[in-house]
C-alpha cells in the first residue's frame, strides 16, 4: 500500500469511527447538568445540615449548620454547634468566600480549598454552588442506567480542575462525583444517597458522603434536614450581614 493510500485509509476509518460515535455526542450534556442543578437545589431555600467527620477508629465530630441559598451562587452557612464553633458563619458569592469568627469580629477571606471544619470536606464542598456555575461539560458518555459527565472548571478559581459525575438516567440526580486536581490526582469522591421528599416539590438526595485517598480511613458525611423554599433579599448575602445570619432563623 502506498503512503498516499495509507493516509486515505486512515482518514476513512476515522470518519467511520466518528460517525459511529455521533449518537453519543447527540446527548446534550449541558442540559443534563442544568437538570442536575435544578433537581439538587431549589432557587431560594433554607435548610439545616449535620456534618460528621468520622476517623479511622470510628470516633466522630459533628457540626450542625443552618444554611440559606439563593440563585446559582449565593450561599451562607451558620454554625449552631459544637459550642467551640457556634456563631461562625461562612458566605459564598460566586468564587468569593469569607469566614466570620465571632472572637475576631470581622469576616476574613478564605479560599475554596481550605476547610473550616477539618476532615475531608473543604469549603467548596460545604458551600457548594450550582455545578453549572463552575463547570463546563467537556464530554458525556451513556451507560444503560446512567450518564457519565466529564466536567472542566471554568476558571482556576474553582476548587477542582475536573469532575467525573455519574448521573442517574431515571432521576437525573448525581450518584457519585470524582474530583480531580489539574495534575490528574484524584482528590476525593462524593457519594450522593438517601433521596428524600422534603415537601414543596423538593425531592433530592439527603446524604452526601465523601472519602479521599489523601485521608485514608477518614470519612465525612453531610445529612440535610428541613430543606424549605424561602425567599431572601440579596442583602442577606453580604459581608456586613454575616454576623447577623442567626437572625434569619425562625
Amino acid at each position: 500500500m502506498s503512503r498516499r493510500s495509507c493516509r486515505t485509509f486512515i482518514t476513512a476509518v476515522l470518519c467511520l469511527l466518528l460517525g459511529a460515535a455521533a449518537p453519543a455526542w447527540a446527548i446534550d450534556g449541558t442540559e443534563i447538568l442544568r437538570q442536575v442543578d435544578h433537581n439538587l437545589e431549589p432557587q431560594s431555600y433554607e435548610q439545616y445540615r449535620k456534618l460528621t467527620n468520622i476517623e479511622p477508629d470510628g470516633s466522630r465530630k459533628e457540626y450542625l449548620l443552618y444554611m440559606v441559598k439563593k440563585g446559582r451562587d449565593r450561599i451562607v452557612a451558620l454554625f449552631l454547634s459544637p459550642a467551640s464553633d457556634k456563631g461562625r458563619a461562612t458566605l459564598r458569592l460566586g468564587e468569593n468566600m469569607w469566614l466570620y469568627i465571632p472572637n475576631v469580629g470581622r469576616p476574613i477571606r478564605i479560599t475554596s480549598l481550605q476547610s473550616v471544619v477539618g476532615g475531608v470536606f473543604n469549603n467548596a464542598d460545604i458551600l457548594r454552588v450550582d455545578y453549572s456555575a463552575e463547570y463546563n461539560v467537556a464530554s458525556v458518555k451513556e451507560q444503560p442506567d446512567a450518564y457519565i459527565l466529564s466536567l472542566k472548571a471554568k476558571s482556576n478559581e474553582v476548587a477542582y480542575d475536573r469532575l467525573r459525575m455519574t448521573v442517574s438516567k431515571k432521576t437525573l440526580l448525581p450518584r457519585t462525583v470524582e474530583a480531580y486536581a489539574a495534575s490528574g490526582l484524584l482528590i476525593k469522591t462524593l457519594h450522593y444517597s438517601g433521596v428524600k421528599d422534603f415537601g414543596g416539590g423538593i425531592v433530592r438526595p439527603s446524604i452526601l458522603e465523601t472519602d479521599s485517598p489523601l485521608y485514608k480511613g477518614y470519612k465525612s458525611v453531610m445529612v440535610d434536614v428541613q430543606v424549605r423554599k424561602r425567599a431572601f433579599p440579596d442583602e442577606v448575602f453580604t459581608l456586613n450581614y454575616l454576623s447577623r445570619v442567626q437572625d434569619l432563623r425562625r
Binding site: 470510628g58 444517597s193 438517601g194 445529612v223 434536614v225
Partner: peptide
Amino acid sequence: HGTAQGAPPIAEADSITIPGIEKQPFELG
C-alpha cells in the same frame, strides 16, 4: 474497635433527630 464505638451506619443517619435546630430567645455560651 470500630464496632465498639457503636457508630450508626450512615444510611441510618437520615432518620436521626437533630437537636439544636429550634431557635431560643436567650442564648448563652
